[in-house]
Nucleic acid binder design. Structure first.
Lengths: 235, 235
DNA sequence: ACTGGCTGTTACATTTCGTTATATTTCAGA
DNA sequence: TCTGAAATATAACGAAATGTAACAGCCAGT
């Protein structure tokens, strides 16, 4: 069982969070728990998960409101976990956009089965939320991820290969932050690998004015790389 | 509420069929009922619905077997309606591919809410059969699946073959999402095949302005292909 | 049988990308 | 400051992935 999908559990009762996490992790999922809506919101924006399991009775915000927000962005799956077994509540939650509504107390194994079912359905559905479609502007360059096209300040165009694209996107998503080689590689390829250096060299050759003295992407000796400029995204 | 989607209800108890049908029809769905698995199978092959609601206790065949068959061609949604409230049954049904499992007795209004929720998810999903009838607009092109006709921005027309059609439709149904060769192939043909590349080449020749430098369909090396544009569907 | 269109296969050209080898840079310690 | 080991840069190479023209089989309609 090598799912590896990210699931967020949002419930103010720590017991529930723990129980759900343990069960899901046994089936190969990566789980993070949150006990307040605010924390969850922030995390969802930063690293959107494949699925959110939400308790309606949160201390700091209306659970329904959170559900609605999530469902409007249409890509992340939403399961409601509630102590209230009333039909109007269920109907409201589901019509608001939730994909399932489970009443407490529930059987952990059934929850897992429903999670599996939903993720299976989500898999071949909707645009991939990870694919960035806005254009990035940085250091008198413009990069359009839709077409993998880079436009320099003086109008020259060049195309990035898909591996170069992934690397550049990771940097653009975390400007002015040191990223280790592992972080830049993601889940691909083995532990000892110098290929990242070569990739970086190829990216630099396309984005730097003088690739021998890189300004935009600096090397942090012994640690990783950093994108030194600000980035603004235009739709 | 003008859904107009086709739903099949398969249950040997006529009362249940009638109740479910009435309720769903009030919400604008087209419903057909079947009291035996054989009838349903035939109808599903002839006119595949958007969703099947299946009672497990059918007189002439094992309900689970029917569920499994349906789910294998995973374009049609499957809801199980069962009198058995046991966790193993639920888990089995859901793992087999069902999208929901509802225990009798149930509240009709909740059933409708769950149907709405599921169909919403299914809407932009699934390797469609040939059933798409709306016209797709993307990248100053218009494609009419009914006639397999492509119209370019400057008025030129061309026709796609049916294999090209399937490929293009799969891409249009999942814009901005990387699709693997397997996903694009669907259930057809053998494991290692280069035919998809050739098909893609032929599609590109028709939709791209400069097929040597494709803009609309990009290749993701080692992974698959991606449609880079937005798509809007007009009836 | 003949024809024309569709489709998969094959063969070869091209691109991508990781590996290797070598040059260069960094930095701790003398 | 100097020195050497470790880290990084990148050119060059080759294996694998992809693009596509050309060919061959199949099928429906004549």
């Amino acid at each position: 069982m090598n799912n590896n999908k990210m699931i967020y559990v949002i419930d103010d009762e720590k017991d529930i969070c723990q129980m759900v996490s343990l069960e899901l992790e046994q089936f190969g999922y990566s789980v993070r728990s949150f006990t307040t809506g605010a924390q969850a919101c922030h995390a969802i924006r930063t690293r959107p998960p494949a699925l959110c399991i939400i308790d309606l009775g949160l201390p700091d915000m209306d659970g329904m409101e959170l559900v609605k927000q999530l469902c409007d962005k249409h890509s992340v799956g939403v399961m409601i976990l509630s102590g209230r077994n009333s039909v109007p509540d269920k109907v409201l939650g589901l019509e608001l956009g939730a994909d399932d509504y489970i009443v407490k107390p529930f059987i952990p194994r059934e929850l897992v089965a429903r999670v599996n079912s939903l993720l299976r359905r989500l898999e071949n559905s909707g645009p991939d939320p990870k694919t960035e479609t806005r254009t990035a502007q940085f250091a008198n360059l413009r990069y359009d991820p839709k077409t993998l096209t880079l436009i320099t300040g003086d109008g020259k165009q060049s195309e990035l290969s898909s591996a170069e694209h992934v690397l550049l996107i990771r940097l653009l998503k975390a400007p002015k932050t040191i990223l280790s080689r592992d972080q830049l590689m993601g889940e691909t390829t083995g532990p000892f690998d110098r290929s990242i250096d070569v990739r970086m060299s190829r990216v630099r050759k396309k984005i730097e004015q003088d690739p021998k003295n890189p300004e935009i992407i600096k090397t942090i000796y012994g640690v990783g790389y950093i994108l030194t400029t600000d980035v603004s995204w235009t739709p």
